[in-house]
Design a protein around this nucleic acid. Structure first.
Lengths: 201, 201
DNA sequence: GACCTTGTTGGACGCCTGCGCAATAGTCCA
DNA sequence: TGGACTATTGCGCAGGCGTCCAACAAGGTC
């Protein structure tokens, strides 16, 4: 197995363990077992646990970000792109990847590499949204005085609501999270209520 | 020291350590050292670490909740109460208690007692807000079709934005978090922009 | 065929964890 | 004053952690 392949395999194994046990409960030995190799090998490719966790989290988050971005690029006008955003974001979230974000935000205060990665990816999500909003303002599809701020607010409301469903399991149903986030986005962007309406699958 | 006092002292010491090191990094020995006693004593009052962490988190969160609730009760009309809410919430948050919420949300998946406490207190915050909104609708100060949902959304946007400032330190300044949250609340409640305006201290 | 680089192993090291338990200290009641 | 009770101590236990390192295996180069 080539060094590049091996490195990818380690990241993949770490991600599997993280999804199963959470970021804080991921250990070098579990990652090695998952891969069927020794624990020393992991440290041959990653200087520290912090680095490995950051790399695994980055892969998970990047996959979601890329698939959402790709889905949005497939849509023609900004309105359709926003629809794609919500549809893909919600789908990605329900695969329990969101628990990783909760872990990352909490671990950020203790693990520099995780903090840097989490910050970078959060900004990338905001930028993805801000770009679409700016495009929509140019084409007069949207009315929005502050695209960058609106992107933060749309994302934060989505995160804040999703947080409740994932951390506490019961309080809000996923349907409400989607409907409320979409409705909020519509007011932010000066759209008629229902314009971004999505059928809950 | 009476059993009740001792129990309170342990919770207080645990809270100090949690604020310093975070929830995940709080250990029985650190709590005992903080209190100047032995580690066995902690287990004499708390059956497990999970219970102790939940109790300490509960105290921190309850203090904030109570002080905000008290400040709101001191205000006469619903509009003034909403102003109090934001003023106190932001003040409480900047004392770094918010990192505890991040920890609690992440730990919730692994520690049943922490999950129960976190869920109960989150619902209490939502209820506090929902009650004011319902009162405001009755007195025609607010126009809001769904007070319970509006409470969740106002709270979630606040949490989502605060999360970015606390976890990533830099991206958004606290002033924006306050202004954006207040503006969002104004639209939710059918108020003129600026009605809830608060001077950033 | 000898050599050297490098992926890989498996275990040792030192430290830390939550928890339990026997022994001690202190206090209240008969 | 003696006895009972309980808060408190201090340490031990079993296990887990990240990290490190000497040894082995394999494959390419001279």
């Amino acid at each position: 197995m080539s060094p590049t392949q091996r490195r990818e395999a380690i990241v993949g194994a770490a991600l599997q363990v993280m999804l199963r046990n959470g970021m804080a409960a991921t250990t070098v030995r579990d990652v090695a077992d998952e891969m069927g190799s020794s624990s020393g090998l992991v440290h041959h490719y990653f200087a520290s646990m912090d680095e490995l966790l950051a790399a695994a989290f980055e892969r998970a988050a990047t996959i979601d970000l890329d698939s959402t971005a790709a889905s949005m690029r497939g849509s023609a006008d900004p309105v359709e792109q926003m629809r794609s955003f919500f549809a893909t974001y919600i789908r990605a979230e329900q695969d329990w990847a969101f628990q990783l974000w909760l872990d990352a935000w909490a671990e950020a205060s203790r693990r520099p590499a995780v903090r840097a990665t989490s910050q970078r990816l959060n900004v990338a999500w905001q930028r993805l949204l801000a770009d679409v909003i700016e495009a929509g303002v140019r084409t007069a599809d949207f009315v929005c005085a502050d695209p960058a701020g609106a992107a933060w607010r749309i994302l934060s409301l989505l995160d804040g609501l999703a947080l409740q469903t994932v951390a506490h399991r019961v309080d809000l149903d996923r349907g409400a999270v989607l409907r409320w986030s979409v409705a909020h986005a519509e007011t932010e962007l000066g759209l008629e209520p229902g314009t971004l309406g999505i059928q809950p699958c």
